[in-house]
Simulated scan of single mutants.
Amino acid sequence: MTSWLPAARDDPAGLPDEAYVALLGADGDELDELGALADELRQKTVGDALTVVVNRNLDPGLVLTPDHLDALVSEAWALGATEVCLQGPLPDAAGPDAAVELVARITAVAPLHVHAFRPAEVEAAAARRGSSVADFLTTARAAGLGSVPGTAARILDDSVRAALTGGTDIPAARWVELVRTAHEAGLRSTATIVYGHVETAAQQVAHLRALAAIQDDTGGFTELIAMPLVDVPPGLAARGASARETRALHAVARLLLHGRIDHLQAAWPKLDRAQVLAVLRGGADDLGGLLLDGTLDPAAGPEAGRVLTADDVTTIAAELGRPVRQRTTLYGEVPPERVTVGR
């Protein structure tokens, strides 16, 4: 493995697959060297600021009435949020244009960025209204949809996806097609990888290569979010993601995606504090969202109870010796009057 480190320093994104597979196995001093290299690349690419977005998650299936939605959106805005993230399927009884109407209602209440509809939910929304995926996305964007989550990518290998979900996942090729269509409609998205279960290092590299190919064609990804599998399906013999694997994967992702996807997120709801700090010292630059719960209905989001406070962010940044920058969903600047983190 050591022989690939000088080559990685010279050409981080230009190594063969076998090199990245070898780097994913780094440990001890070699892992420290790999992490330091990834962190140098992070600093050269995006600078030292630790970025974070102030947002709120809402599950459309738990937001039961229009008035309830209005109140939750108003509360998010009052708490300083710049983004509302919708995660989860629409209720079965929702009308044909429910997804578009939901976006339009949110943006009518407050000028929030709406980050909504995972690939399978995009497909379902288009089918509900009897339109093509492209037409749905164009209409939703006109109603105020700002970006889509590139989640449920898991590992873009159908055998792995079948093992994780019992065959209920959309095929990997369809996930790719749906994300490409979103990008072509003018919407940005996140990119994700879920690791630490039944996949191999070679499959992790192939997944990152697939994301890189999409980015080369569309430029639509804003960031990569690498998440260990936390909720293991019954009967799945998952190995579990070690702290070593977590560090190595984040570092390799920084290298392989260099020049393509600038931002690498530390998925703090899935990692313990030590791991968050480790990946932020080893290639990651972003903390994702605060995931505000609010007080009106804290259980209305799919990750209720997992909240990062402004003080938490300040403390983490101080441990890293880095400044904090509150960002928009697309990594732009937040108007000064809306900044609540890192003043």
Rank of each mutant, 00 (worst) to 15 (best):
T2Y: 03
S3K: 14
L5N: 04
P6N: 10
A7H: 15
A8W: 08
D10T: 10
P12S: 09
D17P: 09
A22V: 06
L23K: 03
G25H: 06
D29S: 09
D29C: 02
D32N: 15
L34V: 09
G35R: 00
A38Q: 07
E40V: 14
K44I: 04
K44Y: 02
A49Q: 01
A49G: 04
L50Y: 14
T51Q: 02
V52L: 10
V53N: 11
L58S: 03
P66F: 09
H68S: 13
D70T: 13
A71P: 02
G80L: 09
E83M: 13
E83D: 15
L86W: 10
G88A: 06
G88R: 15
G88W: 15
P89Q: 13
A93K: 05
A94Y: 00
P96C: 07
A99W: 15
L102E: 08
V103I: 06
P111A: 12
P111R: 00
V114S: 00
H115W: 10
A116E: 06
V122W: 02
A125W: 00
R128F: 05
R129E: 01
G130P: 01
S131T: 08
S131W: 01
V133T: 12
R141H: 08
A142L: 07
G144R: 03
L145A: 02
T151D: 13
A153L: 11
I155R: 02
L156C: 05
V160E: 04
R161K: 10
A162N: 06
G166I: 06
T168I: 01
D169F: 08
D169C: 03
W175L: 01
T181Q: 03
A191P: 09
T192G: 12
T192C: 15
G196N: 07
H197E: 14
E199S: 08
A201I: 00
A202E: 09
Q204C: 05
L211I: 13
I214H: 06
I214S: 03
D217Q: 11
G219H: 04
E223P: 08
E223G: 07
I225W: 05
M227Q: 14
P234W: 02
G240S: 13
T246N: 07
R247F: 11
A248K: 00
A248R: 00
L249A: 09
L255S: 01
L255A: 00
L257M: 08
I261L: 08
H263I: 01
L264M: 14
L264G: 01
A266T: 03
A266D: 11
A267H: 11
A267T: 11
W268I: 08
R273D: 14
A278W: 11
V279G: 05
G282F: 13
A284M: 15
D285T: 03
L292R: 00
T295L: 09
L296R: 12
D297W: 04
D297R: 03
A299D: 15
P302H: 09
E303G: 10
A304D: 07
R306P: 02
T309Q: 13
D312E: 06
V313E: 05
V313T: 14
T314D: 13
I316S: 13
E319Y: 08
E319F: 09
L320M: 13
P323V: 05
Q326H: 12
G332A: 13
G332L: 15
G332R: 14
R338Y: 03
G342Q: 01
